[in-house]
Design a protein around this nucleic acid. Sequence first.
RNA 1: GGCGCAUUCGUCUAGUGGCCUAGGACACCGCCCUCUCAAGGCGGAGAUCAGGGGUUCGAAUCCCCUAUGCGCUACCA
Length: 491
Amino acid sequence: MSDSRPVRTRYAPSPTGDPHVGNIRSALFSWAYARSQGGQFILRIEDTDRNRLVETSTDAIMESLRWLGIDWDEGPEVGGPHEPYFQSQRLPLYQRAASQLIEAGRAYRCFCTAERLEQMRAAQAAAKQPPGYDGLCRQLSAEESEARSKAEPFVVRFAMRREGQTVLNDLVRGQVVFENKLQDDFVMLKSDGYPTYHLGVVVDDTEMEITNAIRGDEWISSAPKHIQLYEALGWTPPVWAHLPLILGPDHKKLSKRSGDTALLDYRTNGYLPAAMINFLAFLGWSLDDHTSILSIEELKQHFDLSRVVANPAVFDIDRLNFLNGHYIRAMGDAEWVETIATWCESGLPASVPRPVDRPVIEQAAPLLKERIARLDEIAPMVAFLFGEEAPEYAPEAILERVPEREVAIRVLETAAERLGAVPDAEWDVARIEAVIRGLEEPLGLKLRKFVPALYVAEMGRAQGIPLFDSLVLLGRERSLRRLRTAIRKLG
RNA sequence: GGCGCAUUCGUCUAGUGGCCUAGGACACCGCCCUCUCAAGGCGGAGAUCAGGGGUUCGAAUCCCCUAUGCGCUACCA
C-alpha cells in the first residue's frame, strides 16, 4: 500500500449547475485528505456534456469552494503543470487514448443509431433480459470500420473483458468483486468527439498523477469500467475511496426533489462556513468517540480516509443549526459587529436609512449573539430599533401574553406613567430596570407576567433582545410613544 | 428484473472478540438560572446493536441465510 509519490487528490465536478452539498462533501474530503497528507488538491472541470452545460457553473463551483475555505493547488484560475484543467480543452488526450485502444483491439467504433439502441433495449426489457449493448459493431472488420467512419457518425465503445471478475479494492468498502459477464461495452468517446466520464476520469487522473480517487458511492458500479480501462491502457489506477451517500429527510439520495440545496444557498440563508465545514465533516467521518466540534484547521490536520464509514448519512438540519449557533457565539466581537452590519444592510426594510446606524448596531451586538442561530434572523430581531414606531403588530400579540385587555392596558399605562417620570438625563439601564421592577407592586403582578406586554409594545413581538437595554437604545421619547401607541391599539 | 452497497438511540456517530449492564453530539423532556426569547448549567428518557442461524469459554464486533433500504443499470456526470 505504501507509495512514495505525494498524495494528489482532485475534485472533478461537471458544470451542470450550482454544486450541491453532497458534491461539496466529496470535495471537502478530497481536500482534507490531501492536506492531512501534505499533498496537493486539484480542481478539474469535467465539462464534457455540451447539452447540460450551464455557463455560470464553474464560477459557482469556485465560489462554493472559496466560501468554505477549500483552496486548490492546481486548476482554473491558479493554473498548474497539467493545464488545461477543463476537459473540453483536452480533447486530443482522450482521442489519442481511444485510438490506442482501437488499435489494440480493446475498443471499437459503433455506428448504431439511437433508434436501434432504443429498440434493442425495448426488446431486452420485453424479454426480461438485462439491458446492455448487444455488441453488433464489435464484429466489424477493421477495414469496414475505418471506411464507414469517413461517412457516418460513430461512438467508440470499450470492449470489456467478459471472462472472470474485476476486483475493486476500495479504501472504505474493502474488496468488491464484479462479474465480468455482467458488464457491457460502454461508450467512452461520444459522436461529438467528447469523452464520456469513464474515459475522461481515467485519462485525466492518470495524466494529472492523481493518487487517490475520492468520489461518491453512486460511482462504485462503474468502477469495473475504470479498472479495465486502466488495464487496457497499461496504466496504474489510483487508490479508490467511495464515500457514503448523503440522504435527504426521505432517506433517498439528496437531490432537488429530496431536500437538497445548492451549497451557496446556505450562505444566503445565514449559515457560517465554519458551521458548514464542521457539519459536512461529520457526515460519514468522525475523529474519535467524543468530538463533535471541529475547526477547519483541525480537519486539515486529522482527517483520515480510514475513519470514513460505509453507510449513508441523513442530512440533519437541526444539527447544522446548532453548529451555526455555536460558531456565531464563538465569533469575536469585532467580526460579529461586521456581520450584523452586513446582514442589516441587506435585510432591513428599505425605509431604514443607509448606511445603517453603526452605534446602534454596536450596542445591540452583544445582546444579539446568543439569540441567533442563523444570520438571516438578525434583521427581523433588530428592526424595531430603526423607526419611530415598533414594526407593525396586531393587538392580539399582546393579549396572547397578557390575556385580559384591562390588565394589559393598565400595565402599559402604568409603565408609561412611571417611565415618563424619568428625566431624559437619567434614562439608563439601571434606572429603567428599577422603574419596571417597581411596577410589580402597583400592578400586583410578577414581572414575568406583565413584561411581555412591554416587549410587544416596544418591538412588535413578544420575544427579542432584553427590554431594559432596548429601551435605552430606543431612547426615552420613542419608548414612551410606543407605549402610547399600544394603549391606543388596545383601547 | 439484474448487479452492488448498507443496516448500532428519531438523526450524526463511537465501537475491529472480553474495558459495552453499548459512549458522545443534535433533537426531545424536566429542573436551575432568568425582564421575554435565547444562551448556559444539571438531570432524564431514548438502541435487546435489522431478524435468524452458526463459530467461540465469550460477539455489536467473525461466517452464513433472510428481510429491508439505498445506489447503479444513457452518446449524464
